[in-house]
């Protein structure tokens, strides 16, 4: 196994490059921002999906909740109440720089907290279910949330809402700010999650994945661990959602906030492609899938979804455990052969 130190060195080299790239390729800065977003989405999905073996199709819920809660706080924190005759979807709030960043920070945190509360409540209800039953139960979550959001006038209902405009007087452009913000946040997420997976908590999640009956009979309160894991994922996912809402500048319940067919599916596919249940797998999967998606879109417009589908099929057929899972398995195989030889 590669030690943390070696890994960290690779990470620092990667980061040095990442920090400079937007200066060299300013036209690609939004695409690069999304790569960091995708890494966060895949990492958070893997907490339950990979490490605990509980496939969730409903994590997009936390993404959208973070996005909406943050947007509402940003809109209302420094401006007087809504004019009831105005159409919510057309309200554009202009804030000065300090107001913008304070409301962004408060909104993001509020979104994350609301998402965690939701995860605890929902988790207590449905995480007692095992495996597939839980997966089926989560299928409707994102869709239900989109329907509900479409009916609330306060957040613009079906027409969506607009996030505050980035203050123009700053030297740092909006694109650069969000690029570095997401880069920093992805790094924090990565290191925190790695620490979690190497801790007692992480091993408890793995134990649930491998044999939940055994974990229970050994006195581990499995449901509580699953809820805790989901809540941690929800916290980070909601922060990512809050940021994405601001990057896009416009929030729509079906197409953006609770968009199952895009963000909701991507986070699962990326984690599985890279190798679920590993820390590097989701990172790798996010980079591969998002780069491929953008490349196909640029050069194969019209056939881009076909090409992406083909890529997924190829990886699933040849690397069923993900790119990283494939190498991990080979390594373990050679390890066990070596130790058997050593014994004989």
């Amino acid at each position: 196994m590669i030690t943390n130190n070696k890994q960290n060195m690779l990470i620092w080299i990667g980061l040095a490059i990442s920090a400079v790239v937007p200066l060299l390729l300013p036209n690609y800065i939004t695409v690069l921002t999304y790569i960091w977003v995708m890494i966060i989405l895949a990492l958070t999905w893997d907490m339950l999906g990979g490490q605990t073996g509980y496939t969730s199709f409903g994590n997009i819920l936390f993404f959208g909740v973070g996005m909406y809660v943050s947007a509402v706080v940003q809109r209302d924190m420094f401006s007087s109440g809504l004019d009831r005759f105005e159409r919510v979807s057309e309200i554009v709030v202009n804030l000065n720089a300090s107001e913008y960043f304070v409301s962004l920070a408060v909104g993001t945190l509020a979104g994350a907290i609301v998402a965690v509360i939701l995860a605890v409540i929902l988790g207590s209800g449905i995480l007692g279910m095992r495996g597939h039953y839980f997966a089926i139960c989560t299928l409707g979550l994102g869709h239900a949330a989109a329907e509900i959001a479409s009916g609330i006038d306060y957040i613009g209902a079906g027409s969506g809402m607009v996030t505050p405009i980035y203050p123009g007087e700053l030297a740092l452009s909006k694109e650069a700010f969000y690029y570095y913000a997401f880069m920093l946040f992805a790094i924090v997420t990565f290191f925190l999650f790695r620490k979690i997976y190497q801790s007692q908590f992480g091993l408890a999640l793995n134990a649930i994945r491998d044999n939940e009956n055994k974990a229970e009979s050994m006195g581990i309160h499995t449901t509580q661990y699953k809820i805790a894991g989901w809540s941690i994922a929800a916290f980070f996912l909601a922060i990512a959602g809050a940021g994405v809402g601001n990057v896009i500048g416009f929030i729509d319940p079906v197409e953006i906030a609770f968009s199952g067919p895009t963000f909701g599916v991507w986070m699962i596919v990326m984690a599985i492609l890279g190798g679920k249940g590993t820390i590097w797998g989701p990172v790798l999967g996010a980079v591969i899938l998002y780069s491929a998606k953008e490349t196909f879109w640029t050069y194969l417009l019209g056939w881009d979804k076909v090409a992406l589908g083909l890529l997924i099929v190829i990886i699933v057929v040849y690397f069923p455990k993900g790119v990283l899972g494939y190498f991990k398995e080979r390594k373990q195989l050679s390890n066990s052969i070596l130790s058997q030889k050593g014994e004989g």
Binding site: N206, D210, N211, N213, K214, A215, S217, G277
Partner: peptide
């Protein structure tokens, strides 16, 4: 357990 219950991937 009669059939072993261990965490196989650990």
């Amino acid at each position: 357990f009669q059939q072993t219950h261990i965490y196989g991937k650990m």
